[in-house]
Amino acid sequence: MVWMSRVVYRKYGNFVDNLRLYVKGGSGGMGLPRLGGQGGKGGDVWVVTKEAVTLKKVKDKHPQKRILAGAGVNSSVRALKGDKGEDQLIFAPPGIVVTSDDQKVLGELNGVGEKVLVARGGHGGTFHTGYLPSRGQARHIRLDLKLIADVGLVGFPNAGKSSLLTKLSHAKPHIASYPFTTLRPELGKIVYPDYRQISMADLPGLIEGAHVNKGMGHKFLKHVERTRQLVFVVDVCGFQLSPKTPFRSAFETVQLLIKELELYNEELLSKPALLVVNKMDLTDTELKLKELLGQLQDPEGFYHTLPKDMVPRHSVTFKDVLPVSAATGLGVEELKTCIRHTLEQEAAMESKELCRERLQALRVAAQPPKLRDPPVCADTLGLTRNSTS
């Protein structure tokens, strides 16, 4: 048992999804008073996204967690304007949110090659500063990885998310029968016959109280924010984390998942969602599925059976409810088709809304300015009065 816990700790320790660094721009170079020379500007510190980079690699490359840019070159007789100091680039994976210690967002980097300035270099000495340079900007920054995927699998431990990801894609996550098998997000690609690809993330299982950071809490929930569509995965037979925790039926599991997302960030419930009822290969599952479907048709009518703290303020209307078996492959192809259809439908709606907004902006820009009464000059009024008299 001790050996197992050590293995699990080492595996999770290799995954880093947030990192705090000290960054400092280079100081400017000295000016040359005798000849009016200008010192070089200090180097800047940038965060740049790059493929095949992880925050673990960033941490290993900078064990001291200090990144300092080069100082500007002093002005001299041979070069009155000093050269700029060397910039420092922090390569990070796409899907990074860069914040300062006061929670100010410095930038969100989603695509490869995007960059954000995190520490500006100091100015070189000039006549206006008495030829004295300024120091570079210094601050602590946080690199927070929020996974970017088209689809995110949401569910409690042992709901079968990893098995489902294996059936849908070429990903090979670790699969076992004990809770918290998945300790880090796993990404896979669903490849269709026409070579269309959809990225899917198997997110670590959450537990009751995840919104207040119990279990993996915010480490799980923050990744949900960066997915376009949610796929709720529940065990048709219900769920129980341990003998010390209460048993939850499939309907209770769905409502509890909705409640956890709602308490963390209500905006997550606005994402398009599918419900996958897994493990349909077990016995007596047809009756349980029928009961669940009846409860989902009128969830408010069954809220009285739930504890008060489990009742969500907002219900989720699933675009589709699909019974599947990750073990036998039942319903997997239908799920792949449904995921693609709902994503394309959502993209079409977003494109239509964008076109409508642009058309409205063009119409407003094309409208002539409103005609107003011309201003009346006081001299004109005087002349008018004189002529009348």
Rank of each mutant, 00 (worst) to 15 (best):
Q88C: 14
G107F: 01
V7R: 12
Y12M: 11
K167H: 09
E353A: 14
Q255R: 02
G301I: 02
A201F: 03
I198T: 08
L206A: 02
V224G: 00
K259M: 09
G70A: 03
K214N: 11
A366W: 06
L147W: 04
D309R: 05
G329N: 05
R142A: 00
R10V: 10
G160L: 03
V45N: 06
E346N: 12
S163G: 13
P133I: 05
Y12Q: 11
D83L: 11
L153F: 15
H128R: 12
L32E: 13
R340L: 11
L80T: 08
Y22A: 06
I175C: 08
A326F: 02
V311C: 07
G125A: 09
R248D: 05
L203S: 06
Y303G: 08
A176W: 00
K290Q: 13
P323C: 09
F239C: 11
V73K: 14
D60G: 07
V2S: 13
V276N: 12
A79Y: 15
L89K: 15
L21F: 08
K290H: 10
T305F: 03
Q295P: 06
L257E: 00
K288W: 00
R358I: 10
T126G: 15
K50S: 15
L269S: 02
K271I: 01
K172C: 05
S27Y: 14
K219F: 04
D298W: 09
F302A: 13
A52S: 12
I258F: 04
H341I: 05
L221H: 01
V276M: 03
L292D: 06
G136T: 10
D101C: 03
Y131K: 04
L19V: 05
G107K: 01
L359D: 04
G13F: 11
E350L: 10
S134N: 09
V212A: 09
Y9E: 13
D44G: 06
R363M: 15
L164C: 04
A347E: 14
K319L: 12
F127E: 15
N213I: 05
P246R: 01
A273N: 12
L19F: 08
P272D: 02
W3F: 12
P179F: 12
L106N: 01
G215T: 04
R196N: 14
S76D: 09
L322F: 03
Y303K: 00
F15Q: 02
